[in-house]
């Protein structure tokens, strides 16, 4: 098995080197660029290659931002399938989750990218087209309205993964849909396929002030992105793979956000599914989100 893998790698590396020789010649002046250009798909990297890539990127970030970063590449643990719960009878629409996410995941401040969108509805309405994305929160909650925050629903049957022409986005064994920013070609087909508007594209070079950067990174998560790639919520993979709650869960002032392992019957999310009325957004599309909205009241 291992031998075959090695063989495949060699052939791949060879073909790659030969196939793009002209291009690599053009950029051979700057070694880092050609290395980045010829980089393999994350899932095809051996441990050594992952290490090299990690070191290269850490160096690159240090040079660019003048700070020391830790770039994690932790794989998924077995026996874990992440699930998320959001208590709609508690959410007040204060948008603290939005900005906690922006800070934790190094989202571009200019142009602005936000992975969480909070929609405000008039009581009695549930049509997205009647929702308000740009409500001025003022003091919340506001009588006569309710809010639904929407982010990546981490579908078990993700249409974005199905349509990606290069396999740059995929579902990890623990259920998180991730993007290899170095493999994404930026065709934005996944954005057209996503029913939850959860994917965002770096139309311009993302800009985050160096002092605002979170230095605890994950390769598949919050590492600084480049222009021309798609990004999305990863359930804070840099935190959750190390056992911690996602940032939005911890920040929610009303405790509306819940997180846990769907395969553990004592986890918070399993208890919610067992004891509360839950629903999933756009269930008719059979995307099977692992993001459960529920009512505790």
């Amino acid at each position: 098995m291992k031998k075959e893998h090695d063989k495949k790698l060699t052939r791949r590396t060879f073909l790659k080197t030969a196939g793009v020789a002209a291009a690599s010649l053009a950029v051979s002046g700057c070694n880092g660029i050609s290395e980045e250009f010829l980089q393999s798909h994350f899932r095809e990297m051996g441990p050594d290659e992952i290490n090299q890539t990690r070191e290269r990127l850490e160096k690159q970030y240090k040079k660019k931002y003048g700070r020391t970063f830790h770039l994690g590449t932790e794989p998924a643990d077995p026996g874990i399938l992440f699930g998320y719960g959001l208590d709609l009878s508690r959410c007040i629409g204060c948008r603290r989750c939005v900005y906690a996410c922006v800070h934790e995941n190094n989202q571009s401040r200019m142009p602005q990218i936000q992975w969480i969108r909070v929609l405000r509805f008039k009581n009695g309405s549930r049509n997205f087209e009647e929702s308000d994305h740009y409500y001025d929160a003022g003091m919340v909650p506001k009588e006569g309205y309710y809010t639904i925050p929407i982010q990546c629903q981490q579908c078990e049957n993700p249409p974005c993964v199905k349509v990606c022409p290069t396999g740059a986005t995929w579902k990890e064994p623990d259920g998180i849909v991730v993007v290899d920013y170095n493999w994404c070609i930026g065709c934005r087909y996944c954005m057209a396929a996503c029913p939850y508007w959860a994917r965002h594209f770096n139309f311009a070079t993302p800009h985050v002030p160096a002092d605002k950067l979170n230095t605890n990174l994950h390769y598949l998560g919050n590492r600084p992105r480049m222009r021309g790639v798609v990004e999305k919520c990863t359930f804070c993979i840099q935190r959750t793979r190390k056992g911690r709650y996602p940032a939005c869960v911890e920040v929610c002032p009303v405790g509306a956000r819940k997180f846990g392992n769907l395969l553990d019957e004592n986890s918070e999310i399993s208890m919610i599914i067992k004891t509360k009325r839950v629903f999933r957004l756009k269930a008719d599309l059979n995307t099977q989100p692992k993001f459960y909205y529920f009512f505790s009241l």
Binding site: I92, G93, C94, R95, R96, V98, Y99, P111, Q112, Q114, R117, H133, Y134, Y135, D136, A137, G138, M139, V140, P141, P253, V254
Partner: peptide, 11 residues
């Protein structure tokens, strides 16, 4: 619960 100030509108 007392009311909380909400945060900025997305651009």
């Amino acid at each position: 619960f007392r009311k909380l100030p909400g945060m900025a509108i997305p651009e």
